[in-house]
Design a protein around this nucleic acid. Structure first.
Lengths: 109, 109
DNA sequence: AATGTTCTATAGACATCCGATAGGACCCGC
DNA sequence: GCGGGTCCTATCGGATGTCTATAGAACATT
C-alpha cells in the first residue's frame, strides 16, 4: 500500500513555476529551489516532475529558454516568462482563488 | 488542441465527497448534487468521476454502502461514512490547509 | 407501448505527477 | 590527470485520477 507522501496537486505546478520564475531568468534547479522557498518548504518539485512541466510550458508559449552558464560555471538552460506566461499567471491565479474559495465553503460546514 | 478544462483538482474530490456525505446516508447522485451546493456551484461532479471515486473510497474503507430505495422509488445505493472515513476527513483537511497555505504564500509574492 | 427521468455503471482517452535512472560537465583532493 | 562528488538536464515506465461518452435497468408519465 505504501501511500506516496506529498503528492502535488495536478494543475498547481504550472502556476508555481510561473510564480517562481518571476521577472528574472532562472534555470531549472533554481526554479525548483525557489518553489520550495516561496511555499515555505511544502512543495519539493522533483526533476521528474519539473522538466516535463518546463518543456510543456515552453511548448505552450508561456516560457522561453536559452542556454547559458550557471553561477557555478555549469551549462544551464535559463527560462524567462513571456507575455503569454504573464497572462497565464492571472488566469490560473483566478482559477486557484475560485477553487480555494469553493473548498473553504465546503469545509466550513 | 481542444484543451480539456480539468475542472477538478486531483485529490480534492475525495475530501468533497467525505464532506458531502456528512452524517446522513446519501446515494450517488445526491452526493453529486450536494457537492455542487456546498461549493456554491463551482464543482459539478459528473458520473464518470463520481462512481469510480465512490468505489475507490469504499474499497479504502472510508465509506460503506447498502442498496435502498430513493425518494423517487428508484433503486439506489446509499453511502455512509465510516469511522475511518471520519479520520480521513481530518487527515485530508489538514493536508488541504497546508497546501492552501503554501499556495497563498507563493501567490502573495 | 413509447418516452422521459432517475440512478448506477463502465470503457476509453488523456493529462500529469512520481520514482528511478542516466549522463555530461565542472570542481576538488590526491 | 585520475576518481569521486556535485550540479544540471533529461527521459522512461508506471500509477493515479478526471473527463467524455455511452449504456442499461427501473420507475413514471403520456
Amino acid at each position: 500500500m505504501t501511500q506516496s507522501q506529498t503528492n502535488l496537486l495536478q494543475g498547481t505546478l504550472d502556476l508555481l513555476i510561473l510564480k517562481a520564475v518571476g521577472d528574472v531568468e532562472m534555470h531549472g534547479l533554481g526554479i525548483s529551489r525557489r518553489i520550495e522557498h516561496i511555499t515555505e518548504g511544502t512543495f519539493q518539485v522533483k526533476p521528474g516532475s519539473l522538466f516535463p512541466a518546463l518543456h510543456r510550458m515552453e511548448e505552450a508559449g508561456w516560457l522561453t529558454s536559452f542556454w547559458g552558464e550557471s553561477e557555478n560555471n555549469r551549462r544551464a538552460k535559463y527560462y524567462r516568462r513571456t507575455k503569454a506566461g504573464e497572462r497565464q499567471v492571472h488566469v490560473e491565479t483566478k482559477q486557484w482563488n475560485t477553487i480555494a474559495g469553493a473548498m473553504a465553503s465546503a469545509l466550513k460546514a
